[in-house]
Design a protein around this nucleic acid. Structure first.
Lengths: 250, 250
DNA sequence: AGACTTCCCGTAGGGTATACGGAATAATGG
DNA sequence: CCATTATTCCGTATACCCTACGGGAAGTCT
């Protein structure tokens, strides 16, 4: 019955801890340098470019030297993620909506600057300062409404899920654009023959109806954006409404 | 100015096309056999197990022989995805909510049977029969409400995004459980020292308040499920409300 | 000067996808 | 029966990836 405590926690929270005494051979690098370099590589060439070998080469160091600073590659990715989460610098004093919109803006900006975030699973995120700051910020935003404590969690989780999903989707699109060299519109254009050669009108009456009404004119990326804004509006309105006595009319 | 038409469309829609005349050396396998085998491997061992070499070995064939049936691995993954999308067999005649709930159930079941779906990006999905059937089904469900045509798209997209995000999150959790051997709760337990050694109460007042109120008792997976149901309720209510004249009270 | 602590890193092994070109195997036409 | 044609089958070679292990190197402290 051994209690295993992961090596990653002290690394995530390394800024909360005083520097150790200098003893032994002094290091050439630091965790921050390794993480920053990996982020830069991932930003410009994708997450796979932030391989141990590539990061080491970028720092003019042998591959295995990195393992002095970081236990393994998954941990390096965790450190990268929490770093950029933290770098959003979430703080605000505004109303519920102002706070949520700031959160959304910063999150979209983050995914645009670091699209590789979309290649990292959302489940079991690094529990570092960045991720906890996000939780605290959104919970505090919802708390301004005066919701019952038991409902805070699900409302906040709803907001983060919705915003993050949309930002990730946009980032995936950007990644595909880089790897394929094709924009979403060009990609759809390549598949234009779908409608002539393969699409069966009979089994898709609703799509055909919408098509004939001319409501498919916006590109794929704009449609995703439309749906995001629409859903966010409903979600926020629903949360606000749940505190106003369930049935009040504006 | 060459028009490039991707080789994948005829493969995705292969069931809509009559069989070709038998001439030349007869094939030992078929696209369906390859795709089915790859799905089986991915189901039991993860998407990376469905490598070209592994699928070929499973079929007692050399690796390069697969390239006779499938242009490359990304296309194979597209075929796998559309296959399982199609296999949901979405059809229903009920009310708006009945249809949406059927969609949600089937989608969750699909991600549980094929968790590797969560490893495939959502952007630019295979435009095959399975994906188009999903679009048609959800659009038709929303259309039963009598929404204006221009709003159908964003409402349907909102529903698919919300349901899919939750199902993917659950699948990611299942994948991590398999690869790490740890459940979400065990994973959090491993990080128990976070609260004692690293968490700063001062900079996380809202979290601390919720903690003291005892509202953190549910596990991570249950919290995600709560947020999903809560958000879906708000989303559906909002969509229904938007057709009832904007401000009507039940 | 000697002890001690810590960093640095070479090697080796088992994975991955796929371009290319030639050999194998069937049906068909004469 | 033989030649033609169409198609499938596949061996080889390349350039990546992660990391366990253990010994040598380079500092600080007493």
């Amino acid at each position: 019955m051994e209690e295993f405590s992961p090596r990653i926690l002290p690394l995530l929270w390394r800024r909360s801890v005083p520097a150790r005494r200098a003893v032994g051979r002094p290091p050439r690098l630091s965790v921050d340098i390794v993480v920053t370099t990996a982020i830069r590589l991932a930003d410009t060439e994708g997450l796979e470019a932030a391989s141990m070998a590539r990061v080491a080469a970028e720092l003019s160091v042998a591959t295995m030297s990195l393992y002095t600073y970081v236990p393994s590659r998954p941990e390096l990715v965790d450190l990268m993620v929490d770093e950029v989460l933290w770098a959003r610098g979430l703080t605000s004093d505004g109303t519920f909506r102002e706070r949520v919109l700031l959160y959304a803006e910063r999150t979209f900006a983050m995914y645009r600057a670091h699209p590789w975030l979309a290649e990292v699973p959302r489940a079991r995120p690094p529990v570092g300062p960045g991720m906890l700051a996000e939780q605290e910020y959104v919970l505090a935003a919802v708390a301004t409404l005066g919701l019952p404590v038991r409902e805070l969690n699900r409302a906040a989780a709803g907001i983060t899920t919705w915003v993050t999903s949309a930002a990730r989707h946009e980032a995936e699109s950007a990644l595909l654009r880089r790897t394929t060299g094709l924009s979403s519109d060009e990609w759809w254009q390549q598949r234009g023959e779908l409608w002539e050669n393969w699409f069966d009108v009979g089994s898709h009456p609703t799509m055909t109806m919408i098509w004939n009404a001319g409501a498919f004119d916006r590109g794929a990326d704009q449609q995703a954006q439309d749906a995001y804004e629409y859903g966010l509006g409903l979600l926020l309105a629903g949360i606000e409404r749940s505190v106003e006595g369930d049935d009040r009319v504006p």
